[in-house]
Simulated assay, not measured.
Amino acid sequence: MIDNNISPFIKWAGGKRQLLPYIKEKMPLKYKNYIEPFIGGGAVLFGITPDKAIINDINKALINVYNQIKYNPIELMDFLSKIDIQSDVEPKEYYYKKREIFNDKIMKSEYDIELASLFIYLNKHCFNGLYRVNSKGLFNVPFNNSLAKSFNEDNIKAVSRYLQKVTILEGDFEVACQNAQEGDFIFLDSPYAPLNDNSFEAYTKEGFDIESHKRLAILFDRLTKKGCFCMLTNHNTVFIEDLYKNYSREVIKVRRYINSDANNRKGEEVIITNY
């Protein structure tokens, strides 16, 4: 492991900062490569900083941010500094203007350093740091009235240094795991299964439906047969319990900070392992 003081550079719905102590405690003592097919905000990656890591996500805009921090951190921070200075005059109006530019670049598939800087800025200044898109795949989260700085320079530099050792992929979770070998540790933190039949949390326009969860469970079985160490986190539901009934399960009580209803902010998550 690398002893770096690194923190996630964005907030992410379903982020694992709250579960990190439990995850660290349940990790295998020794493993070869670390693979995280649903990287999100990277709380686990940056919390354990493995020497050999492969990360992936289907969210192209998110993976673009990781690549820009890895290869162009100084230029990225220059963009962000200009955005932060300009936003001081009319913060709310400025936010919606930048959101429109961000969505225009998404529609044009312009995954560049400007898009990455807008992603980080919008994440810092949108409601609850929630990445949510509409049916067209366009970001639609409102302004949170924050005047906070969009980034921490020392942290971005530390993240960039660490990412030099990390292989960054973009695409389907199965493809990200196709070269996993015996002794590798795979941490699976997909978009969560619904708490009931009428709710679902999806953060890309493609979504992550029931069939996707079933496909993930099949992958979990396949990786187990390969001799990989697998850990998966999700809501503690009957559906998830049934999918992983043959594996070890630990239920953890959590607070859900993103839920707007304070009465629904308490819940249970489960950590599932095959070892």
Rank of each mutant, 00 (worst) to 15 (best):
F46P: 02
L45Q: 00
Y22L: 07
F143E: 00
A158F: 11
L195S: 04
S212D: 15
E90Y: 14
A116I: 01
L20G: 09
S160M: 01
I2T: 11
D51N: 13
G227I: 01
K11H: 07
Q86L: 12
Q86K: 15
V238R: 15
R99H: 04
K124Q: 11
M107T: 14
I63Y: 09
F102W: 08
N103I: 06
D209Q: 15
L223D: 03
E25N: 12
V166D: 04
G183N: 05
I63H: 07
Y66T: 05
L19Q: 03
Y203G: 00
E174G: 12
Y66L: 04
I101K: 14
P28W: 06
G15T: 00
N234F: 05
S190W: 00
F208K: 04
N144R: 07
K26E: 10
K30Q: 14
E170L: 03
I168E: 03
D189W: 02
V254W: 02
N152H: 07
L243T: 04
S199E: 13
N128V: 06
T204N: 07
T224V: 02
L147W: 08
Y22E: 10
K24V: 08
S199C: 10
S7I: 13
G137S: 05
R222W: 04
L223S: 01
G171Y: 08
A262I: 15
S190R: 07
I10V: 13
E93D: 12
K32Y: 10
E90C: 13
M27A: 12
M107P: 08
A180S: 09
P194D: 06
E153N: 12
E268I: 07
I106Q: 09
R215L: 10
